[in-house]
Design a protein around this nucleic acid. Structure first.
Lengths: 191, 191
DNA sequence: GCAACAACCTAACAAGCGTTAGTTAGGATT
DNA sequence: AATCCTAACTAACGCTTGTTAGGTTGTTGC
């Protein structure tokens, strides 16, 4: 019995519409129409459009961050942790596609303070990626190299997926993560 | 004596504002204000806001496409061509940052027909990347692997840069391309 | 049975939007 | 001297935007 409140439904619709059309191209009346109520009625449940965007982006970053916090602290080799991070990242992408899209694409339209809050979370996430890489280099799991650059490499792979990955295709999220991981480890060089 | 017409100036400002705030968050009056004219005066030079966006996105995709067409047809090994493609891609990113940002970020706000035109160009670009990879695998320049997946790998690296790369930092575009290329070739596996 | 409340409605607000029409001033062309 | 062109202006158009105020339901708790 999962009880979805009206508020939850509003967030759900907003996630979908924001992800499809973008924040500024979505109107409050459109969100309302999907729920078969009038535009003004939304304000019985939420405080405004900005809050709607902020909540969605925040939920997205919390989701990614929670996964990363779990993984980074695990007592497994860096190699296994990196693979697990990639798996979890793509799993979120696949399970919460609209939210992830809004998180990556629409955070620019937050006001400055809220943007800063999101940026801090993003930085934290990136620091975990770099930490895994650093520890992996030290432990001999990874070849040595510029930690920042390798981090950007991994993050590019993960973050760009929201632009093209559509779950339900031939490739499920775990397989994609594994294949990306393998290619990342082995490289293009023939051996 | 490079003569910039008023029209050119309008595109230049629009590129910058669209890239900073997004298409829908930029008003015609804001574009005009930057040129110290009135909103309505823009229409002596351009036909409307959509045309403005389309022209900018189109110029971006033309720029990337031109580079890729040059590179893919060269009579050099796939390995060299891939590196050159990455260099040129990042060079455009660095030289035409606002245009590249609009190209990657705002094309969604084009109407359907214009979107299709852009999508066709993007597909063409991606086909060149995959072609280089395919030819490289055949020639033994690259380890064999899923052409589509390797292509996505390369494109993720290149396309994500618009989200973070700021020219003028410690890393110039050519160095970045080379470092990305090296990492892509060698992989993270220690040897 | 009555009060309280939540969920929604209608109607309107002020502001801003892209765009157009009509006009004006100055310079170039005939 | 008459005409045209260019680039700008002012003023307004019709419409949409996010948001609010006040009223109307139906349900719940006492």
């Amino acid at each position: 019995m999962l009880e979805t409140t009206r508020k939850d439904q509003i967030y759900e619709v907003a996630e979908r519409l924001f992800s499809e059309r973008g924040y500024h191209a979505t109107t409050m009346r459109e969100i309302a129409r999907e729920l078969q109520i009038e535009g003004g009625s939304l304000y019985s449940h939420i405080s405004g459009k900005q809050e709607l965007l902020y909540e969605i982006v925040l939920r997205g970053s919390e989701q990614f961050l929670r996964a990363a916090r779990d993984v980074v602290a695990a007592a497994t080799p860096a190699r296994a942790r990196l693979r697990e991070l990639m798996r979890r990242h793509l799993a979120i992408m696949a399970q919460s596609t609209p939210r992830a899209i809004v998180h990556f694409h629409e955070w620019r339209h937050l006001d400055v303070e809220r943007q800063a809050a999101i940026r801090a979370r993003r930085d934290e996430y990136e620091s975990y990626v770099r930490r895994i890489i650093r520890e992996g280099v030290v432990a001999g799991d990874f070849a040595s190299g510029d930690e920042r650059l390798i981090g950007l490499h991994v993050l590019s792979l993960l973050n760009w997926t929201y632009q093209w990955y559509a779950p339900g295709g031939t490739l499920n999220a775990d397989d994609l993560a594994d294949q990306f991981f393998d290619l990342l480890m082995r490289g293009l060089e023939p051996r």
